[in-house]
Computed example of a mutant assay.
Amino acid sequence: MMDAPVVMIENMHKHLERESGADPWAAAMAAAEEVGPALFFSLIIIAVSFLPVFALGGEEGKLFAPLAFTKTFSVAAAAMLSVTLVP
Rank of each mutant, 00 (worst) to 15 (best):
M80D: 01
G21L: 13
L67G: 01
A65E: 12
V75L: 14
S82Q: 04
L85M: 00
M80R: 02
M29S: 00
E60V: 03
P87E: 06
A32H: 12
V86N: 00
K14L: 14
A55L: 10
E34K: 15
M2Q: 11
E19I: 03
M1N: 03
I45R: 15
A78P: 12
M12L: 07
S20D: 13
V83I: 13
A22Y: 13
E19T: 04
W25C: 10
H15T: 11
E34P: 14
L85Y: 01
A55C: 05
A79K: 03
K62V: 07
F41H: 15
E17N: 08
I9V: 13
L56M: 10
P5D: 06
M1P: 03
M1C: 02
A47Y: 01
G58L: 06
V75A: 14
P52G: 00
I44P: 05
V35H: 12
T70V: 05
L51G: 05
G21H: 11
T84Y: 13
V48I: 13
K62W: 05
S49D: 10
A68R: 02
D3E: 11
L85R: 00
M8S: 11
D23H: 01
I44G: 07
F40W: 09
D23W: 00
A27Q: 13
A22L: 13
K71E: 15
I46S: 11
K62Q: 14
I45T: 14
L63E: 11
F64N: 12
L56E: 04
F69G: 03
A79Y: 09
S74G: 10
E34D: 15
A30T: 14
V83S: 07
G21E: 15
H13D: 02
M29D: 01
A38G: 09
A28T: 09
H13R: 03
A32Y: 09
E19F: 04
S82V: 02
I9K: 14
M29Q: 00
A68Y: 01
F54T: 10
A76D: 01
E10A: 09
A4W: 04
G36E: 02
A55R: 04
N11M: 14
G36D: 04
L39W: 08
E34T: 12
E60K: 06
V53L: 05
S74T: 12
L81W: 04
G58M: 07
A77R: 05
P24H: 11
V75G: 07
L39I: 14
E19K: 05
L39K: 08
I45G: 13
P87C: 08
W25V: 15
I9W: 08
A32F: 06
S82C: 10
T70M: 10
E59K: 11
P87K: 06
V7Y: 04
A68W: 01
A65Y: 08
F41V: 14
F73P: 00
L56D: 04
G57H: 07
A78D: 14
L43R: 04
A30V: 12
A65Q: 11
L63A: 12
L39T: 11
E10K: 10
G57Y: 03
D23G: 01
M1L: 03
S74E: 11
A28W: 06
P66A: 05
G57I: 03
F64Q: 11
